[in-house]
Every structure is written in structure tokens, then in C-alpha cells.
Amino acid sequence: MDRHHPQAWREAVRTGMPTLFGIAAWGLVVGIAMVKSGLTVPQALAMTLLVFAGSAQLAALPLIATGAPISVIFLTAVVVNLRFVIFSALLAPHFAHLPWRQRLMLGYVSGDLAVALFLQKYPTTDPQDGKLSYLKGLIYPNWSAWQVGSIIGIFLGSAVPPEWGLGFAGTLAIVCVMIPLIVGVPALCGVLVAGAVAVAAFALPYKLGLLVAVVAGMAAAMLVESVMARLRRAP
């Protein structure tokens, strides 16, 4: 069941292809931000290859630049990336039979959009041929697009003038990537609450407003989902 399925691979590549430009553009912006924040080229390269999480990287960079305590930096990155715990829980039943080393590698390469597209294709955990090839066809091009964009941004970081406004371009890119993922009322409520809290808590030190916004958005989405589940079960 885990042998390579070229047809599933090609289908996944075609499905994920429209997202790759936005992923690369977002990686480019994060790469530039790493260099602009004071990281050396080797440090920035290590961060993009080891961390592979744009939101956590951008959340950590201003904290690093301002000399925030390592505990605050670590906690912020962990909270921003908590969604990957949910992604792992959703993917686990599909691939629990694989060796743990292979699952660990798949978890590292998996990203938001790839997981969402996979779960759209395979909403149930029923055994089906081609699942592993389909996931690989989503995650490997996604990872490659991010790394190419990020590495280009790292080497161009010192040469790009601030007036180009790439920060705003990166914001547009991530918005374009995020919108298709807002499926259902709980997700929409989570996004709205997180956005409102981020604006209200903007003045908090060490950029902690982002941390508070993420926690508030997750809590709101989980609360709405719980209420809707109880309403569905009600007679």
C-alpha cells in the first residue's frame, strides 16, 4: 500500500502547483527579514532549513533583535506553531503504520497548505492506495518552493532597499495563502478574534501581542467548534 504511485504523485503536484508562487514569495520575504534583523547568512540559512516555519520565524525575529529572554522567544515560537500539533494528529491515523523515522521526516516537511489539501482529498482514514505518494507530491514541492524563495531572500537581503515595500508584498502573499484555509465558522471566528486581539495588543512589549492573538484565536475557534458540536447533538 506504501509503494510509489506516479498517478497520485502527479495529481498532487498539479493540485498544489497554484500555491507554490505564494509560498516562494512568502519565503523570499522571510529570508530578507532574517538578514535585515541582524542574522548572518549562515545563521539565516540554518534557521530556514531547521525551523521551516515562516510564522514562527517572523515572530521570533523581532524578539531576537531586541534581546528578549530566550524563554520568551521559545514560548512564542512554540505557541505560534501549535497548529502543527493539530496537523500531526490529523495525519497520524493515515500513516501510523510507517516507521517512526519516516513519520518524523514527513512531519518536518509538511506545511499548512499541504496538510489542508491532503485532508480535502482523503477526509477519512480508510486505507487507500496512493495516500503516501499524494502527500509527498504536496509536501516536497511546497518545501522546495519555500526554501528556494527563502534562500534567495537571504542572499538578496542586504541588497534590497526598504522602499521596495517587500514587507507589504509578503503580507499580501500570506493573505492569499491563508484565505482558502478559512473553511467553516470556527476557522472564521478564530481568524477574526486573532486579528482583533493582535491590533488591540499591538503595544505589548517583545511583540507579545502576536502570542496573545494566536492563543485567543485558537481558543475562540475551539469554543465555537465545541458549541456547534453540542448544537448538532441536541434533539
Rank of each mutant, 00 (worst) to 15 (best):
F52E: 04
A53E: 00
S55R: 00
A56R: 04
A56V: 10
A56I: 10
A56K: 02
L58I: 10
L58A: 07
A60Y: 01
P62L: 09
L63R: 06
L63F: 05
A65Y: 07
T66Q: 15
G67P: 06
G67V: 12
G67W: 07
A68I: 08
A68W: 03
A68P: 03
P69Q: 10
I70H: 12
I70L: 15
S71C: 12
V72D: 05
I73A: 09
I73P: 02
F74C: 12
F74H: 08
L75I: 14
L75M: 14
T76A: 11
A77R: 04
V78Y: 11
V80C: 03
R83N: 07
R83W: 03
F84L: 11
V85A: 14
V85D: 09
I86Q: 04
F87W: 08
F87N: 00
S88M: 07
S88P: 03
L90G: 07
L90R: 12
L91V: 06
L91I: 08
P93I: 00
P93Y: 06
P93T: 06
P93K: 01
P93W: 01
H94L: 09
F95G: 02
A96L: 11
A96P: 05
P99E: 05
P99T: 07
R101K: 12
Q102T: 14
Q102P: 08
R103K: 13
R103N: 01
L104A: 15
L104R: 11
L106S: 00
L106V: 07
L106F: 02
G107A: 15
Y108S: 09
Y108H: 14
Y108D: 09
S110V: 11
G111A: 14
D112E: 12
A114M: 01
A114I: 03
F118D: 01
F118N: 06
L119C: 08
L119R: 06
L119W: 02
K121I: 08
Y122E: 05
Y122T: 07
Y122P: 00
P123R: 05
P123G: 04
T124R: 12
T124F: 10
T125C: 14
T125G: 15
D126N: 13
D126P: 06
D126Y: 12
P127Y: 07
Q128V: 15
Q128E: 15
Q128P: 07
Q128T: 15
